[in-house]
């Protein structure tokens, strides 16, 4: 690559990652004021562990992420299998609908879910939050699994049937094992999405059920506290790890 090309590439990556690097650096800065550099230390990470509200919000977030990722994975996988294996009227239409929910602005989703919950008189809190998270995770799982299924030889299913497997057995013994990496990747992706969602959660959760991203949001409203740097660094690390894992799963060959 030419020298200017290389410089350009570095420029783009600097633009993308500089904020994260700054955040990471400041999270290890013991000075209480963001502007000056004191010395390296774990101070802010220690303080995180002493904040009971923060701990509670973290546990809430992890619970919602685990549940919503798992439920969205089950529903989304079933949907993808149905969409892929069976020919029915409106198949393309349903696939299109899936893509629309994938692209829909989060704020629209948040507002519309809130309106729906109010109309159905569903109390805002854990239940409504979980439903909302399942809703926006679902298309990600369905699309990931669908694109995996679409690629494999439909003769494999016929061949399983031919050898005496019922439809359910063919799905259980052949389709699902082959789609497993995509199912895993879908789950990880959902978990990450759920864990750091702010916009939808802001609309649909109640006052007595706080999740981590909203807790962070309320912390920074009074000015950026150094603990937030530490917390954000942790979250970034976790998300990064999950995304890398999901990409590795997807990259695995059949």
């Amino acid at each position: 690559m030419s020298r200017s090309g290389t410089a350009y590439l570095w420029g783009v990556f600097a633009f993308l990652y500089l904020p994260m690097v700054v955040l990471l650096a400041y999270s290890f800065n013991e000075s209480p004021y963001g502007s000056s550099w004191d010395r390296l230390g774990w101070e802010w990470y220690r303080r995180l562990a002493d904040d009971p509200l923060l701990i509670e919000a973290t546990l809430n977030s992890l619970m919602v992420a685990l549940l919503s990722a798992s439920l969205a994975t089950i529903i989304g996988t079933a949907g993808a299998v149905g969409l892929c294996l069976y020919a029915f009227r409106g198949q393309a239409f349903f696939h299109g609908l899936l893509m629309v929910t994938l692209m829909a602005p989060e704020i629209v989703m948040g507002v519309s879910l809130l309106v729906l919950f109010l109309a159905l008189k569903i109390p805002l809190g854990f239940g409504s939050l979980l439903l909302a998270h399942i809703t926006f995770c679902l298309p990600f799982v369905a699309v990931t699994v669908f694109s995996r299924l679409k690629d494999f030889d439909s003769r494999l299913i016929e061949s399983a049937r031919d050898l005496g497997a019922s439809e359910a057995q063919a799905i259980g013994h052949v389709v699902l094992p082959l789609a497993l990496p995509a199912i895993g990747a879908g789950w990880l992706l959902s978990f990450t999405l759920s864990l750091d969602d702010v916009v939808v959660s802001f609309f649909v959760t109640g006052p007595d059920f706080e999740v981590l991203p909203l807790r962070i949001y309320s912390m920074v409203r009074m000015g950026i506290k150094p603990e937030v740097n530490a917390l954000a660094t942790l979250l970034f690390g976790l998300s990064m790890a999950l995304v890398i894992l999901s990409q590795r799963l997807l990259g695995r060959k059949l």
């Binding site: 016929e158 031919d162 005496g164 497997a165």
Partner: peptide, 15 residues
């Protein structure tokens, strides 16, 4: 259905 027929197939793509 195919699973209830005592007939087996060898596919072109082997499957």
């Amino acid at each position: 259905p195919p699973e209830q027929r005592p007939i087996n197939t060898v596919f072109q793509s082997y499957a």
